[in-house]
Design a protein around this nucleic acid. Structure first.
Lengths: 337, 337
DNA sequence: ACTGATTGTTGGAACGTTCCAACTCGATGC
DNA sequence: GCATCGAGTTGGAACGTTCCAACAATCAGT
């Protein structure tokens, strides 16, 4: 249960601690015979370097810390994948902490990473206030993913949600739709730009008079409520753009219950390209965020910033992508105008 | 960008480094006036304790390391939640690394944690071989979650999948079913005990002659293929127990395509109680594993083992729970025997 | 044979904290 | 008035590593 140190290895191999250190770091200024002796002694004793000691003297941990607000959101799994990909083979390693969407826990999670003296900090959609990110950015390169934060030293990586909203409208207009409604995500993250993009594209197609936005949320129930609201009206939309995939499922359920066919009677579009949307049973047209790339880019920004001290913050905005599936199609003839 | 140390704070406050250390650790043998001076100096300088230095001298990191094989599986989000819950307010903190289902990456992820000298190690469904867990267990308390590993010093926390299989059969028999088939998970984790539980319960109900197992996998396609196999037969089962929720969706799709109603013509049961299953659109009857509890128990075992050196390994097996939803119902009259 | 370079090896200082024994100083007891 | 006590404070050693200047041994060139 007690860890052997570099000194134990040195004794075992009959050399000095410095030589053991050189071997461990893969130096080429070591004779083959000493190298062999050290490697064997290390293996025999089960030696494992002590990162804490190394961090102390090197004044670098070679660790990137990632604070994830919510592991339940599959979004982050891909982002983390991307980070891992970018970090591998650079000599750096990534460790994660999570805050469970609770500001207080998130703060603690970040503190843990900072006390460990991570060389870079990635904050994935933090829910806490800007000040935590700003404070962290004063001592360590910091990137926020999935949320734009305005601060002199904080980089960010986001997707262009406004553009995503526009793409949805363009897709539906191309199919022949005109009466396109939007069930929004209320005050949720990214809800506003999606709404703006929708309205902007509608106007761009000369469909100002058809703009119809009802309030929803990023939940199944939010989508269902929004759809019930739309159905209460005199004229039914031929297509609905919903704030995210989960809410879109609520919409589809309501349409099912009313005996309306998707996409025959109403086309439905979600957002986020979750596994739910991809399932063949649902086949939901949706908007994909380049999650993996977001992680890769975030890690890249950190590594770049560790290298040389850049002063101006970078705000990277990546393009979304429309994924057309079976939940959208041309409006039925009777509906066409 | 340079971190102030305890010595900087001491200078600023006009006291010794030892006193600063006492204040930081919340000792009560400090006069109110010195405490105030230290606290203010620390805040002014933005002091943050250095965990690496503390770990060195205390020979303890007060950190629990968690290696997660795959963050895409929502299963782990709940397990991690449970770990966090158990660890909060004990003075310990949890950090995560991930291996992306790749044995080599997993090994690296574990090495990272061990080098950081975590005080306890939780391995969530590792795909690497037992030897990694065994080696780790020689230097640090180790618990494996979601997989039973047989080794003298490795604890484990799993769910009773055999019992889960039995519960499914019992539920279906209670509804009046007799022709109950099983589409298994092939060689996937937990597939075998579920299959065994199914067969055992069938025999228990005197339905030996009705036992019908076809090979599938833990994927949508695996479930679909299995169901097509079953439909090719002369007599159709009135109920199907599928290896997991994802595969169950494949089964439902095939039944839909064949114009068969769920549960009117065929009842379907999944396993894992994923968000997919819970969605009202699907309403899949399934078996829930107490994921949160699994995490809590795992962390508890670690904390207990850190406290005093226990020698015999613990193997905790938690009970699963059947969640009845709309995908199961009584067999139609014509089918009843 | 002597100088200089090259290769391999070494001990000591440093990193930032905690712990401990030791110190000061005013109050208390006789 | 002196020993004793306790509260508050202190400096030094230690933790395990890396880095550096310095050393020993071998070799090449003159």
């Amino acid at each position: 249960m007690k860890h052997p140190t570099i000194l134990d290895v040195a004794n075992e191999a009959g050399v000095s601690k410095s030589l053991v250190s050189l071997v461990m770091r893969g130096s080429d200024r070591v004779s083959p015979s000493s190298r062999k002796a050290v490697v064997e002694a290390a293996k025999k004793l089960g030696y494992r370097p002590n990162a804490a000691a190394r961090t102390m003297v090197r004044q670098r941990s070679y660790v990137i810390g990632v604070m994830v607000s919510d592991l339940h959101n599959p979004f982050f799994a891909d982002v983390i994948d991307g980070i891992d990909t970018a970090v591998t083979d650079t000599g750096y390693r990534a460790i994660l902490t999570t805050g469970n969407r609770l500001p207080e826990r998130e703060r603690l999670a970040v503190a843990t990473l900072l006390e460990m003296r991570v060389d870079g900090l990635i904050l994935a959609s933090p829910v806490f206030g800007r000040e935590v990110a700003i404070e962290a950015s004063q001592t360590v390169p910091t990137v926020v993913v999935g949320k734009a934060i305005r601060a002199p030293a904080v980089d960010s990586v986001t997707t262009d949600d406004r553009r995503g909203g526009e793409m949805v409208v363009n897709h539906l207009v191309e199919l022949g739709h005109r009466r396109i409604a939007h069930i929004d995500g209320g005050s949720g993250a990214g809800a506003r730009p999606r709404r703006t993009g929708y309205a902007h594209a509608m106007r761009g197609h000369g469909l100002e008079s058809e703009i119809r936005t009802v309030r929803g949320s990023f939940t199944e129930e939010g989508g269902a409520a929004g759809m019930r609201g739309l159905l209460a009206d005199a004229t039914r939309p031929t297509a609905v753009f919903v704030a995210n995939d989960l809410a879109a499922i609520g919409v589809v359920e309501v349409l099912d219950a009313e005996g309306l066919d998707v996409p025959g009677d109403v086309s439905v579009v979600g957002y986020d390209n979750t596994a739910l949307a991809a399932s063949r049973r649902l086949g939901l047209t949706t908007v994909d965020q380049p999650r993996h790339d977001m992680g890769r880019v975030a890690a890249g920004l950190i590594l770049e910033k560790i290298g040389q001290d850049r002063e101006t913050p970078r705000r990277v905005v990546l393009p979304p992508k429309l994924i057309a599936r079976e939940s959208t199609g041309p409006p039925s003839d009777s509906e066409q105008s």
